[in-house]
Amino acid sequence: MTKQSIFGRISALVRANVNAAIDAAEDPQKMIDQLVRDYSSSIADAESAIAETIGNLRLLERDYAEDVDTANEWGRKAIAASRKADEMRASGNSGDADKFDNLAKVALQRQISAENEAKEAAPTIATQTEVVDRLKAGLQGMKEKLEQLKAKRNELVARAKVAEAQNRVADAVKSVDFLDPNSELGRFEDKIRRQEALAQGKQELAASSLDQQFIELENLGEVTEVEARLAALKSGPAPQAIDR
Rank of each mutant, 00 (worst) to 15 (best):
D211L: 14
D86K: 15
A228F: 14
E204S: 15
L179D: 08
L60H: 06
A85Q: 00
A46K: 00
K119T: 07
V226A: 09
L179P: 01
A137W: 07
V36R: 00
E164I: 00
K99P: 00
T124F: 10
D38V: 12
R15V: 03
K174I: 01
T129P: 04
D23F: 08
I215G: 13
Q195D: 08
V157S: 08
M88G: 01
L205A: 15
G92L: 04
K152I: 03
R168N: 14
T224I: 09
Q148G: 11
V157I: 12
D33Y: 05
R168C: 04
D98Y: 01
E73H: 14
R9F: 01
K145R: 11
R159P: 03
A25F: 04
Q213S: 12
V157K: 00
R76G: 04
G141W: 07
I43D: 03
A65C: 07
I50Y: 07
V173R: 02
D243W: 02
F100Y: 10
I79S: 14
E52A: 15
P239Y: 08
E196D: 14
L60G: 09
A206L: 15
S41P: 09
R153I: 10
E61A: 12
Q166W: 05
A16V: 01
L205K: 15
D67N: 11
I6R: 09
A121H: 09
G92F: 15
I54P: 00
A114N: 02
Q240R: 05
I43W: 15
I192L: 10
E73K: 08
A165D: 10
L59W: 06
I125G: 00
T2C: 06
V36W: 00
D211P: 08
A20E: 11
I22M: 01
S40G: 13
Q240L: 12
Q195S: 04
S48A: 15
S113A: 11
I22P: 02
S42H: 13
L108M: 13
R153C: 14
A228G: 03
K77E: 04
L198D: 12
A49N: 09
A238F: 12
V173D: 02
A25C: 09
L146V: 08
A49G: 11
